[in-house]
């Protein structure tokens, strides 16, 4: 892709803000992500992670600020943005009355993928995720296990081979083997030049997989940098410790210890 070859940033976010009435969910967020980077996007519940991802995928309109994805402006070229991104939402919602194959074919049609090409891609993902084609064609998604459903959602996000992929809690429901396979997959995708934004609460996975970490709280950016560098700078030892220190988790730990003590007394 021309844009990637020019070495420009795949995602550029400047003063991005989202307000819901009087409440500010995302407050003047700014960062840039080059091609081939895996960025861990972290924050406690309600920090504004999902809202940011929804804005960057064109699902929510920003209240202020600008953002470009693959050089396309989020406000002016929203269709081009959508064409170039894949998104695994946290909810993992699917149309449960469709079979897995019907769902994926529908997604392929939304991205105008030719039928044969879509089928070929679906088969590749089926093989990768160890899904059976019979299950995909015969069972409705409502009867799938959570892990299988998640695999279908991930497949749906990658089916059109987007250069930028946003994952919101992608490992939720995946078994250990599938999770290991998935982590290897996103690292390979990044090596091939795809840009990945990875939002999760499983911090050790983020620490191992991501080249860079952005931690936000109450819609504002707290830190941005390579995990090892951030941990060293803050003298935290681990990313988890750094996260709890920055987002008030230390106080929660103390309260948990106090609470546990009440059982003993």
């Amino acid at each position: 892709m021309e844009f990637m070859r020019q070495g420009r940033h795949m995602i550029t976010v400047q003063q991005l803000t989202k307000r819901f009435g009087a409440q500010t969910a995302v407050d003047a967020l700014s960062f840039e992500v080059p091609a081939g980077q895996i960025v861990g996007f972290l924050g406690p519940n309600g920090a504004g992670k999902s809202t940011t991802l929804k804005m960057l995928t064109g699902m929510l309109e920003p209240s202020a600020g600008t953002a470009t994805v693959c050089g396309f402006d989020l406000r002016r070229d929203i269709l081009e943005v959508k064409r170039h991104v894949g998104f695994v939402p946290e909810s993992g919602a699917v149309f449960e009355s469709l079979t897995g194959l019907e769902y994926l074919e529908m997604v392929a049609a939304l991205y105008a993928l030719p039928e044969e090409a879509a089928r070929a891609r679906i088969r590749q993902f089926i093989a990768f995720f160890d899904l059976s084609f019979e299950t995909l064609t015969d069972k409705l998604l409502g009867a799938y296990s959570k892990g299988m459903r998640r695999k279908v959602v991930i497949t749906a996000a990658l089916l059109h081979n987007p250069p930028v992929v946003f994952f919101d809690e992608p490992l939720d429901g995946l078994d250990a083997n599938a999770a290991v396979g998935f982590k290897a997959l996103i690292q390979t995708l990044a090596q091939e030049g795809k840009t990945i934004v990875y939002s999760s609460h499983i911090l050790d996975v983020v620490e191992r997989v991501c080249d860079r970490v952005i931690i936000i709280d109450k819609g504002r950016m707290l830190v941005d940098g390579a995990p090892e560098k951030l941990v060293a700078e803050h003298n935290s030892g681990t990313l988890e410790r750094l996260f709890t220190e920055l987002t008030g988790g230390t106080e929660l730990e103390r309260r948990a210890q106090d609470f546990a003590r009440t059982f003993r007394s």
Partner: peptide, 9 residues
Amino acid sequence: AADLFRSAP
């Protein structure tokens, strides 16, 4: 699940 339509081009 219909959020899919909004994220599609």
